[in-house]
Design a protein around this nucleic acid. Sequence first.
DNA 1: TGCCAGGCCGGGT
DNA 2: ACCCGGCATGGC
Length: 225
Amino acid sequence: MHNNSRIKDILRLVLKAYGKDLRPFKSTRPIDELIRTILSQNTSDTNSLKAFAVLKKSFNSWEGLLGTDTSKLARLIEHAGLANIKAKRIKEVLLEIKRREGRLSLGVLKNMGSPEAISYLRSLKGVGPKTAACVLLFSFGKPVMPVDTHICRVTKRLGLIPKDLSIEEAHEHLTDMTPKSLIYDFHLGIIEHGRKTCKAQNPRCGVCLLYGLCRFKEKSFYKGE
DNA sequence: TGCCAGGCCGGGT
DNA sequence: ACCCGGCATGGC
């Protein structure tokens, strides 16, 4: 637990600046979360949420999705981009869950430890470290940090993790070093920090003030600031 | 106009 | 164990 005090510092600043904007934890249904997260892979929120809304509207239950052919599914989710890949992933992942569990449910994860649950999810083709972490955190409240490209960049820049970590290693490091009860807030806070105010340096944001962490500088940082 | 968004897989070294 | 190309829409 090397960087423990530093991460607490940063957590405090992030929560002070953005805590009030974060939606409180409310667990989402695991299959919903899984589908939503696959749609979000390498895709903006607005596009993936639009596609998810179309899917929800198209099916009474996800059982209905299993009988739909993949090309038709791809048309339904075209707003999300990468639609052919995602349609195939969603359908095959759901089929595999149904095959394993006898029904379309991830309830089996509830009583698993995090490592076991991660292995289970990642053995589904199309589910990588980020998608697995989202399901475990947002549906089951397990202390697992989802790391996307933005979080990876920012935490490296903050010096919380070494710059040469792969994204998979970053998941492990950040999960380990963040106090369990704060993983959810930290994840959302960093996302919020990037999404909103800190396109330029924000005079009310302690993270920007202390660490110069405004979004517009990220590119130059990664070209070797 | 080009770049990038809450990734992941498969194939090559 | 890494590295890379492919996948593809919409917003700025």
